[in-house]
Amino acid sequence: MRSPFRPDSLPDPAILDNHRPLINSLERRGLLRGGLSLGALVMLTGCDVKRPEAVKSALLAISRLNDDVQALLFNPNKLAPTYPASMILRPPKFNAYYDVMNVKPVDGATWRLEVSGLVADKRPWTVQDLQALPQSSMVIRHICVEGWSYIGGWSGPTLRSFLEHVGADLRARYVAFRTADDYPSSIDMATALHPQTLLATAYGGDTLTDPFGYPVRLRMSTKLGYKNPKWITAIEVTNTYPGGFWEAKGFPWFAGL
């Protein structure tokens, strides 16, 4: 019998190939050692916890394994459910790693988007340049790793159209982001090319406001909230794992929905 958990269409096998170096780069020894010590730990219900750092590295090794499983589960053609515009929460829910009072607004007139890495055209972008690209809209559920969610309506060019426009190497592994609030982030290329991955410049039909990432932020229907950096200032296409703000503190990198 066909499993009800299997996606309707299987992921492109190319994803596995694309991630082969990542999979190979996994610290096998660390994973083995980590898995064994975690297994021992689980069986002894925490009797061997004199070295909490060893436990954490074991958990991180399993988390990286889970990242690979998630990449395999990701179907590049599967669209997230969308909702009517009447369900959009206005204004959206604010979150950051700091209090809202510490938001530093960005001046859209002087703002420039740096482009670097495996791209043909490294010319910086203005707000008007982004507006000149074909625009997309989506009303999707924003899901935070904390558990809360809301329906949001986002518009802007797809990241795919931006990457095609700058002549990015679409076989590269990662797209990395730098932001005005010092919140580095990165995603896999398969997700970057998903039709519901936008460089959002508007919410609910209006220009993004300061606390929500004006002039441009990432919005993906297929990843948890913390993977969507606000106030983006630079985009890099790379094959070197760029990491991210929360990822460096322990959260999983792939974070796919």
């Binding site: 975690l38 297994g39 958990l59 988390s63 790793v145 904390e146």
Partner: peptide
Amino acid sequence: WAAWSLNWHFAGMWF
């Protein structure tokens, strides 16, 4: 904190 709870949860999941 939550990140490590999450990592425990997704490690325990396999077992």
